[in-house]
Simulated scan of single mutants.
Amino acid sequence: MHTLSLTGEFVHPATESAFLEHQLARTRALLGFTLLFCTFFYLCFFVTDVAALGMDTALAATFPARLLVALTAGSCAWLAYRRPLSVRATWLAATVAESVALASFMHIAVQRPQEFHWHAMSLAIMLVVIYLYIPNRLSHAIVLAGTATGVFLELVLRLTTMSFADILTMGLLLVLVNTFGALAARRYNHVSREEFRLQTDLKEAAERDHLTGCYNRRYLHQHLLGLELSRARRFGRPLTVVLCDIDNFKLINDNFGHTKGDEVIKAFADLLAGATRDQVDTVVRYGGEEFLLILPETDLAGGEHLAERLREAFAADRLLLGDNAFGLRTTASFGVACFDFANSQVSYNLPDLISAADKLMYEAKRSGRNRVESMELK
């Protein structure tokens, strides 16, 4: 899941997409600032055009190209600051601004053909900016920078009388800038994604139970209680909770050992996760062998039906404990509590539903275990 490619990006598309969305606000801000900064200095270098060509020639030959860069980069910067650009849109803005700047640079270099040694220095700086300071995909940066380097060297061969040794030295220096620029960009990609991976792992550790992968009670109290309740109230929909507990779990631990006990818990959690709706329902490890299901937009009949399916499936599993001398089977007791926010003037909190489900679950225990007890709060 967290494997990195040669460009330092996550190989797994979903992970890379999550990282890019996480970084998007910072990416837009960096794009806008860098483009404005570069545009300012790009225009400032018009002074050197005047010094080399004279005012009239510079205004006619180079100023339109510099103005085009300013308009393009300024527009892209404005979009980055003022519009909620998507990840792909920021890449497009960066690529367009870089392409126009490089094309304009080549035009200016042609207008001042006696200064290609200075142009080479300027291009090297532009390549560093493209690789490290304008946020874009590394593959895009490599294509742009490599193409610009090739075009520039072709212009050197066509328009100058530089010696072979000078051209070779210039070419090798530009290749070196491209190589180290790409390596530095890849290193930055790697470091930023490693930081994201660590943050994600810490968040998962704080929110998830390490054995089952279910959410823990901390996540329940910090995120779910208010979220699910407000959603149910806002849309006037029913909300159902199911509290379930593995029967005779202490006897399983005592007779089979804690390793087998963990295996039973994990199997039960997998059963719950597989039977609930992904991205809709929530499974929480509520206690040692207790689990809480939060089922938005589910009425009492739906909650009862799910609990019965889970009860029957868990009781039908003969592989976990096998034929044992203790007569133990994998069964669970369920308490189902529901409240329909559309049909009552009375308002309950989610803790009230959980408390009601808890009482119903213990009623199922007292009634012989391997049962479902349910009620709708009025």
Score class of each variant (00 low, 15 high):
L239H: 14
R217G: 03
L319K: 15
T7R: 14
P84T: 15
S86Y: 13
V283R: 06
F268E: 15
A141Y: 02
L67F: 07
L30E: 15
R329Y: 08
L92N: 08
E194C: 05
T169A: 05
G150C: 04
L293D: 04
E154V: 13
S86Q: 14
A356I: 08
D340Y: 05
A52G: 05
L153N: 10
T179S: 04
R187C: 03
E290P: 03
M361T: 01
L295T: 03
H119M: 09
G8Q: 14
L377G: 03
L6M: 05
F19D: 04
A109T: 09
A313D: 14
V156E: 07
R311A: 01
L198M: 14
C244N: 09
Q23T: 09
E154W: 13
H22D: 15
L155R: 06
L132A: 08
S374H: 08
M121F: 11
D262N: 12
R83P: 00
A94D: 07
A316I: 04
T62D: 10
D352L: 04
A275F: 13
E363F: 09
G274H: 07
H210V: 09
L353K: 02
Y362I: 04
A103H: 08
A80V: 00
A120K: 05
L138E: 12
L328Y: 12
R197K: 09
A61M: 11
M170R: 04
F341D: 10
E304P: 03
H305E: 13
R366V: 05
L176C: 03
A307Y: 06
F326T: 01
F235Y: 13
R28Y: 07
R369D: 02
R186N: 09
S5A: 15
P351S: 13
A70S: 10
R318C: 07
A301E: 11
C244K: 06
R277L: 06
R83T: 05
R197F: 02
L319G: 13
C338K: 05
H12N: 14
A356H: 14
A307R: 06
L168E: 11
S347Y: 09
H210C: 07
T72F: 07
D281P: 05
C76E: 10
I354S: 02
A315Y: 15
F341P: 00
G213R: 11
S5K: 10
M162S: 10
D49S: 02
A61W: 14
S75W: 10
F180R: 12
H107R: 12
T276F: 04
T331M: 04
R197T: 06
T57C: 02
N189V: 03
H305C: 06
L79P: 03
L293W: 05
S163P: 00
F45E: 12
L377I: 08
A185K: 04
M162Q: 09
L132P: 01
L300D: 12
N216C: 08
F46S: 05
E16F: 02
N216W: 11
A60E: 14
